[in-house]
């Protein structure tokens, strides 16, 4: 007879998808940071990172005006002469989607992502969460960032967790879905890997798994990013289904972003080095990327106020 405890359920899942050694993976990711990225490789990396940014504002005090200026920044992050690409998307609350759509227009490559499903806790009835997703899609969202039911996962109720994701996939229609695992609440690398597999089995090719909401103490780290990249790799090699990845929160500097990209290059390879397969959920990162690009061109660092430095002012 099967033991029906959450731990037993998790153990069966670990046996199926494999486990992660914490010390081993931390040693592995420390090596990514020792890669020395210079000259043209650096410029390519910085520009690619810009094109992968989901420029984000998720605050209670967001206004249509702030969202509009965020959209302007997304369309033209800096002086066009520098050749800085547009970012991948703006990421806003559902209530701000229509303002973002108005600011961006319909004829744009910059996508609108919205954090639906009672973000960041997800603690609302499923019906409410689905309604929120549908409303955001109706208002013009191209991508939905949902949170998983961490409570169900930790209780070993994997069916419930996956059914909810599947319901959101339905509600999304043609809209891309990003599934936020909220890694800090899953607590272990083993759990992050297991939850990645559960999510990947019910989403579609091209959908994302995402580290975190940015609303808890610990967000994207090289370690949890790596666990998820390796899960994506194993799932792809097993099934041929390519899932995309989005680390979010905590990536503030260009140097960090380049290190994350090295991890992608050396784990998933060239096919993931684009914004259809990899994104950064970030707000202040964009300014540092642009500043480093400016420095590569001129050889000198500009003063902070040369860029719209604070995340507060776009």
């Amino acid at each position: 007879m099967l033991v029906r405890s959450p731990q037993a359920a998790l153990q069966r899942l670990f046996d199926e998808v494999g486990t992660v050694d914490q010390i081993g993976i931390e040693e592995r990711v420390a090596k990514f940071g020792t890669r020395s990225i210079k000259q043209t490789a650096k410029v390519w990396g910085l520009k690619t990172a810009v094109s992968m940014v989901d420029l984000t504002t998720l605050e209670g005090k967001d206004t249509p005006g702030k969202v509009a200026s965020l959209c302007q920044k997304a369309l033209a992050p800096h002086d066009p002469e520098l050749g800085v690409p547009q970012v991948a998307a703006v990421c806003v609350y559902p209530a701000m989607v229509r303002h973002a759509r108005r600011a961006l227009g319909c004829d744009t490559a910059v996508r609108i992502a919205s954090v639906a499903t009672a973000f960041p806790s997800g603690q609302a009835p499923l019906k409410t969460r689905l309604a929120e997703v549908k409303a955001a899609v109706a208002d013009g969202a191209d991508e939905i960032d949902m949170v998983i039911n961490r409570g169900a996962f930790l209780a070993g109720e994997f069916g419930e967790m996956q059914d909810e994701i599947a319901a959101v996939v339905q509600a999304c229609g043609a809209t891309t879905l990003k599934v936020i695992l909220e890694v800090s609440e899953l607590e272990t690398f083993d759990n992050i890997r297991a939850a990645s597999f559960l999510a990947m089995r019910v989403i579609r090719p091209g959908d994302f798994i995402k580290t975190s909401t940015g609303k808890t103490s610990l967000n994207a780290t090289l370690g949890n990013n790596q666990v998820m990249l390796e899960a994506i790799r194993d799932f792809y090699l097993d099934t041929g289904v390519a899932i995309a990845m989005k680390p979010a929160g905590g990536i503030r500097t260009a140097k960090q972003a380049l290190t994350f990209l090295v991890a992608v290059k050396e784990t998933l390879g060239d096919a993931w080095l684009n914004n259809r397969r990899y994104r950064f959920g970030a707000s202040s990162l964009l300014n540092d990327l642009v500043r480093q690009l400016e420095k590569e061109k001129t050889g000198a660092y500009q003063a902070p106020y040369y860029f719209s430095e604070a995340a507060e002012s776009y």
Binding site: S36, R233, G240, K265
Partner: peptide
């Protein structure tokens, strides 16, 4: 799977898209 679906097995590409400078 690849024999069942008769398509090439998935492979990772470790190419020179982002070649590091010396």
């Amino acid at each position: 799977m690849s024999t069942r679906l008769s398509r090439p097995a998935p492979e990772l590409i470790f190419g020179d898209l982002w070649e590091f400078d010396p």
